[in-house]
Design a protein around this nucleic acid. Sequence first.
DNA 1: CCCTAGTCAGGAATGATTCCTACATAGCAT
DNA 2: ATGCTATGTAGGAATCATTCCTGACTAGGG
Lengths: 150, 150
Amino acid sequence: MKLHPQEIEARFRRHAVRVTRQRTAIYAALAETTSHPSADDLYQMVKRQQPMMSRNTVYYTLSVLRDAGLVREVNVGHDMARYDGNVSMHHHLICLGCGQIMDVMDDDLNRLQLSSGQARGFDVLGHRVEFHGYCVSCRQARRDVPSRRG
Amino acid sequence: MKLHPQEIEARFRRHAVRVTRQRTAIYAALAETTSHPSADDLYQMVKRQQPMMSRNTVYYTLSVLRDAGLVREVNVGHDMARYDGNVSMHHHLICLGCGQIMDVMDDDLNRLQLSSGQARGFDVLGHRVEFHGYCVSCRQARRDVPSRRG
DNA sequence: CCCTAGTCAGGAATGATTCCTACATAGCAT
DNA sequence: ATGCTATGTAGGAATCATTCCTGACTAGGG
Ligand SMILES: [Mn+2]
Ligand SMILES: [Mn+2]
Ligand SMILES: [Zn+2]
Ligand SMILES: [Zn+2]
């Protein structure tokens, strides 16, 4: 969702995050996509408008926004970290072929709880659900190249 | 669960994995613990019996066993990969303090499905559930040092 | 408008994992 | 049993996302 700079600034101030050109650009890029980009994806996007931007600033900014609760880090396996501008509670559906990450909003999943017998005395604070599979185009691609495992 | 070398050998042959001293030692170490050790943990354990063992062999062996379906790789966040000798379907409970990973066996969780409305045309093959919290001793430690965020 | 804690850019460092290569060996076929 | 060869092993070098360092810059409270 495309956000006005003033709305971004307001959110930053509400979360005690200093407003800078770099941060605004990075957060804006993240907020207007649902594609869960990596730090480097964001660096490439933002560099077009701000060629002086350092990759390092992207990493640092993302860590600041993450710690402030404005951004979520999504780790899938050992691939590079992906970032999510949607901080409301939700889960993900991941394509094993192309790595795309789709949002899953489902109240039943959000309410999932561990039975106390399984909790082992833990103070359980949250959970994460990931579904894995193949998206439409990856499924297609696999059918077209049956050489590797049917 | 402690396994006899002959049982390990049988499993290897069933999965077309060549039997070597190194592989047997690595798989034995993994099978008799429930602690989800990292590659380096396993290297340290196995090196005691086989000082010539290379760290590289541990990585290579784990990839062979993983591809053969004898071992599962468990990635938690961006920490180093952890390995699981239990390949039956189950989920995990993770301590945010010490990083320990406990098994959660729960048929309801295993049966979890994505509603077709949410599936976005994906061919969904599996899912993963992770619960996060603090174990008994980490909870204790946090209480004892209330200096950082109560 | 000043001051300074916080931020930025660029480069070096890190560290888990992977790649490379020469030697060793498991296990099939003589 | 013996030899052959595809595969595995050890150790070192390379990779590469991420973090660390450092010196210049600036947001924003006073
Ligand atoms: Mn998301
Ligand atoms: Mn497990
Ligand atoms: Zn796909
Ligand atoms: Zn703990």
